Amino acid sequence: MRLCLLVILSSLVWLRAEAYPNFIGYGYNACITCHYSGQGGGALNDYGRALFATEITARDLYPDTMDEEEIGNKSGFLGTKPLPWWVRPGVKYRGLWFQNNPGSTNSTDKFYNMQSDINLNFFFDQQQTYTLITTASYTTYPRSFATSREDKTPYWFAKEYYLRWKTTVKNLWVYLGQMDKVYGLRVADHTSVSRSPIGLGQFDQSQGVIVEYSPAKWNIAGNIFFGNAAEEPEVRQKGLSVSGEYEIYEKYRVGGSAMTSKSETVEWLRLAGFTRMGLSKGSSLMAEVGLTQNKSLLPANGNALKGMYATLESWVLIRRGYNLLSTIEYAKADLESTASEKMRWSIGGIMFPLPRTEVRTMLVNSKYATPDTGVPDNWQLQMQLHLSL
């Protein structure tokens, strides 16, 4: 019943109708407007930094006499001090505190350093025809990497590094190196059912090549990938993916993605349809529905698990810098068995009260439905701080 309700809601969104993909509510459809990557995520370019300061962030800190242009001029890495044209550094930090079962006698809480990144981006000419993007992360060893590392102490590693080429063909870009795979809506929550559970988590970048064509109403990208350099060879997923999105009318886009890949032990297939729709200024609605297949390549385990996931996310602007965020998610790993179903609902605030600062406060309810046993709901209170320089 819950699955049917979510699919119906997602279908209604489809028929009615970066920065975060939610920013379509501000009229920004293409991620390349604000990011060095045309698929979104990673470091912001100069325009993205200024936009974040002048349209997304609250201006309570600034006097009424200061205009938006002056605020934008303060958004550089060193504020108003200009940097050489050939380099753009950046620093990102994200920390998460959460409490399970808040208010109960068995409540537990924990704090995670989710993201500690340093970006160094280099341009080989002032027109940025050739750009080198690099990101180093400080974290404990990701579980998908070499299992020989036994200690859990944080360390620095190369998260992404790629060369971006702006070709002589208008709106055609080529990327070569280690980067995020092309697939679906790149939401910020890497624990979402459309991210890490299907192999697209925070540290699931892969070496490969991306070709992207992004005219006014279209965004089409293809990706051939060969696995993450830090992974053990037997678990590296090698394959290809494609993704496309089309603007039906202003602030309303629909799209689809497909990905096929395999390692020495498992073969993956991913298919998804998605939509984004801007409502009033700053507010948006977006959804993604996907099918998954995981087929073991080991002799004793030849059965393929066919699953699905779905997400529906709304972003409502309350006033500049302050937003209401709500997400409904559903996932089932195997549609042909009595495997458990997961349903998660999150609601809370996503706020940009100060320059270079994001604060999230979310209440999350998770349900696990199994045919044989009842599992109590899990409630979680989350608070997240994101700083970027």
Rank of each mutant, 00 (worst) to 15 (best):
W14S: 01
L15N: 01
A17S: 10
Y28H: 08
A30D: 07
I32D: 01
Y47V: 09
G48L: 03
L51T: 03
T57A: 11
E69P: 00
E70Y: 09
I71R: 10
F77P: 03
T80D: 15
T80S: 15
K81E: 13
W85H: 11
W86S: 11
Y93T: 14
R94G: 05
L96R: 14
N100L: 13
N100M: 09
N100I: 02
P102A: 05
G103L: 08
T108E: 13
D109H: 15
K110C: 05
M114G: 05
F123L: 01
F124I: 03
D125S: 12
Q128C: 01
Y130V: 11
T134W: 05
A136K: 04
T140Y: 08
P142V: 08
S148H: 13
R149N: 08
T153G: 08
V169Y: 12
L172G: 05
L172H: 07
G177R: 09
K181Q: 14
R186G: 02
H190T: 15
V193P: 02
L200A: 07
F203T: 11
G208C: 06
V209R: 04
V209L: 15
E212G: 07
E212F: 00
P215Q: 09
P215T: 07
I220W: 05
I224G: 05
F225A: 01
N228F: 00
E232Q: 14
Q237E: 13
S241V: 02
E247K: 14
Y249N: 11
Y252N: 14
G255D: 06
G256E: 06
S257M: 05
A258I: 07
M259L: 15
T265K: 13
V266M: 03
R276A: 03
S280Y: 12
S283V: 06
A287V: 10
L291E: 04
L297Q: 12
A300H: 11
A304Q: 08
L305Y: 05
K306V: 12
Y309C: 01
Y309S: 01
L312F: 03
I318V: 12
I318T: 12
R319M: 08
S326E: 11
T327L: 08
T327S: 11
A333D: 09
L335K: 09
S340M: 06
E341Q: 15
K342Q: 14
I347P: 03
M351A: 09
M351I: 07
P353I: 08
P355D: 13
T357V: 13
V359K: 02
T361N: 12
L363V: 01
V364R: 11
N365D: 07
Y368N: 05
Y368D: 03
T370R: 14
D372H: 12
W379M: 06
Q380E: 15
Q382P: 02
M383K: 04
